[in-house]
Structures are given as structure tokens and as C-alpha cells.
């Protein structure tokens, strides 16, 4: 016998006979977990926005995200790959909500099939993210950047570049910037003067600093000699003369925020795939059919749509703005 306590205010909302928020305990708790998770993501994304809009320059998404596996591995297809990733995640949200709908009809076969489709979508998204991370890593972007990696001098001594050691850094610097670093704003030192090149100038830069104080180029301009960049005045500088090239502070901040936030989101996707696998096994074994309801599918569905919801914001903030 269960000991059901009847409280004086019978018939009122809180007497235990009616659900206070009109949903079952499990679903309400999932909603509140998602609320707390939403606040966590909000904190991260707001921090990103704070650094982004307070910075004078920032990596341009069309330049950073322009490669596509196999078809355009060296770039040229701006934002196409992330478009595909976004579509895959929205499609997996579609199959998830179709699984929930099938659960309401108590159609075990359909629930199972839609769950499998959702898992495939989630796993594909994770694969795409792994490719993108590895690609950016190879271009020298990471959450923290060791200064050594970015000093021309050091690269020559490590034999990475085939330039001579007699003090001419031309070749090394030129090649280095040309091959990898045009993707992000970099800071170069040429004859004692610091130059910031690459990236997109924000309104902030134009208003607060102006090109006189802080030369910021709109976009890298490649000239026939190799690599040259134009600043806001139209002056060319040749990074081949650089004594040192390091990523700008904004580039390093971008790396930290990008990998941390997409990593945190990717971890959510990964957890979601695991939970979906468990629910999938439950459906395959007929556990929920025996139980007579598919609330488990609804709950994992809420979580999965939330992951999609967060991606909508990550996509806008990192790839579009």
C-alpha cells in the first residue's frame, strides 16, 4: 500500500493529485534542466559577444570557414560546410520529433526507425565537427597559442622552412603567411613597427581608433610577388619583410571562444547520441511498448531539440555575424 497523503486543500493545485505544471515529473525536470543549461550557454555566448564587439578587429567568418572536405579542402567555398552541418542537425531534429509523434501513436517500429535516423544525423554532425576542428588546428588555430609556433625565427631554426639561417627571413615569412595565416588577423613586426593585417574591421575600430592609430585592412590582398596586404590607407606592406608574425590578440581570443563553445555544444551532441542509443535499445527490446507509453522518447526529444536550439545561436554568432 502506498501512503498517499491527503492535504487539507483538496482539489487545489498542490495536493498531489494534479500535476502543478500540467506535465509529468520527468518532463518538468527535463525542462528545468534545459533552463539551467540554457543559462550556461547564454553565459558563454554573451562572453563571446562581449569580446567580439569590444574588439577592434576580428577573424572574418567567410575567410576562416571556407573549406569543404574532399571537394574544396584548401578553401574557396565559404560557409558551405557549416550550412551542411546546420541542415544535418535540423534534419535530425525533424526525425526526432517524428519519433515522438510515432510514440503518441504507439507505433514501436516507426519510433525505432526515426530514432536510428536521428542517431545517424547526430553522429554525422559530430564527424563534420571533427573535420572542421582538425582543419582549423592544422591552420594553426587553437584555444591557446604558443608564441614559439608563430615566430618566423623559430620556425627557421626548427627546420620547418627551407630559408637560410643567415638572417634573411623573407622566404620563410612570406610562405608562412601565404600558406596558413591569411585566415586570421595577424600581428607582424616590420622594422620595429607593428602591423595588424587580415580580418574584418569592426565599426568600433573605425570609430574609436581610426586607421592612423591602428592600421586594419579590410581584406588580405594577394599581389603578384607573393603576398602583400593593403591597409586602410591603401599602403602595401609585404609580410615577407616581417621579423615576427604572431596571431593578433583577437585571433587568439577567437580560438579560445570557438573551441570552447563549439566543444561544449559538441559534448552535448555526443551525450545526446548516447542517450538516444539507450532509448533506441529500449525501443528495440519492446520495453516502452510493454510499458504502454513512450514518454522516454519525449524526454530525450526535448534534450535533442535543445541541442539544435543552441546550435542555431552558435551558428549565427560564430559563422554569420
Amino acid at each position: 500500500m502506498s501512503t498517499h497523503v491527503t492535504i487539507e486543500t483538496e482539489g487545489k493545485v498542490w495536493d498531489g493529485r494534479r500535476l502543478a505544471l500540467g506535465a509529468t515529473y520527468g518532463k518538468v525536470m527535463m525542462w528545468f534542466f534545459l533552463l539551467s543549461d540554457a543559462l550556461t550557454f547564454s553565459a558563454f555566448l554573451t562572453a563571446y559577444g562581449f569580446f567580439r564587439f569590444a574588439s577592434t578587429t576580428w577573424p572574418s567568418p567567410e575567410i576562416v570557414f571556407q573549406s569543404f572536405p574532399f571537394l574544396a579542402p584548401h578553401g574557396g567555398w565559404p560557409l558551405v560546410f557549416v550550412g551542411l552541418m546546420t541542415f544535418i542537425l535540423i534534419a535530425s531534429s525533424l526525425t526526432m520529433v517524428l519519433a515522438v509523434e510515432a510514440g503518441h501513436r504507439k507505433d514501436n517500429r516507426a519510433v525505432l526507425n526515426y530514432l536510428i535516423a536521428t542517431i545517424i544525423g547526430g553522429a554525422t554532425f559530430l564527424g563534420c565537427q571533427a573535420y572542421e576542428w582538425s582543419h582549423l588546428l592544422h591552420q594553426g588555430l587553437w584555444i591557446g597559442v604558443s608564441n614559439n609556433d608563430f615566430q618566423v625565427d623559430n620556425e627557421i631554426h626548427n627546420g620547418i622552412h627551407h630559408a637560410s639561417l643567415d638572417g634573411t627571413y623573407d622566404h620563410a615569412a612570406k610562405e608562412w603567411v601565404a600558406e596558413r595565416r591569411i585566415f586570421y588577423p595577424v600581428k607582424t613586426v616590420i622594422d620595429g613597427v607593428e602591423w595588424n593585417i587580415g580580418g574584418q574591421a569592426t565599426d568600433q575600430a573605425a570609430r574609436l581608433l581610426g586607421p592612423d592609430h591602428f592600421p586594419v585592412s579590410d581584406k588580405p590582398v594577394l599581389d603578384y610577388n607573393g603576398v602583400a596586404y593593403m591597409n586602410a590607407h591603401g599602403d602595401y606592406i609585404n609580410p615577407g619583410n616581417a621579423q615576427m608574425v604572431i596571431p593578433s590578440g583577437e585571433t587568439m581570443m577567437f580560438g579560445k571562444l570557438f573551441f570552447f563553445i563549439t566543444g561544449f555544444h559538441g559534448f552535448h551532441v555526443f551525450s545526446g547520441v548516447l542517450i538516444l542509443l539507450i532509448v533506441c535499445i529500449m525501443a528495440a527490446k519492446g520495453i516502452m511498448a510493454k510499458r504502454g507509453h513512450y514518454e522516454m522518447v519525449e524526454k530525450v526529444g526535448l534534450y535533442w531539440h535543445f541541442v539544435d536550439l543552441v546550435w542555431v545561436f552558435v551558428f549565427t554568432l560564430f559563422y554569420l555575424i
Binding site: A20, L21, G22, A23, V28, W31, F32, L34, L35, A38, L39, S42, T46, S93, M96, V97, G301, L302, H305, F306, D308, L309, V312, F313
Partner: peptide
């Protein structure tokens, strides 16, 4: 985001109480 929350997550069909309990704290954001 509204489309996902209201339709995919069925928020539109939940009670007003649950809706406000989840959405109002987001005003802090």
C-alpha cells in the same frame, strides 16, 4: 529558436504555468 521551442518541443501545447516558469528566467539573459 521560437519555432523549435514552440513546435518541436511542444511548448505551445504545455500549460501557461510551465511556459512562464521556463521562459521568464530567460529575461535575465
Amino acid at each position: 529558436a521560437a519555432g523549435i521551442v514552440l513546435y518541436f518541443m511542444h511548448m505551445k501545447h504545455e500549460t501557461k504555468r510551465l511556459m512562464y516558469s521556463v521562459l521568464l528566467p530567460m529575461l535575465l539573459v
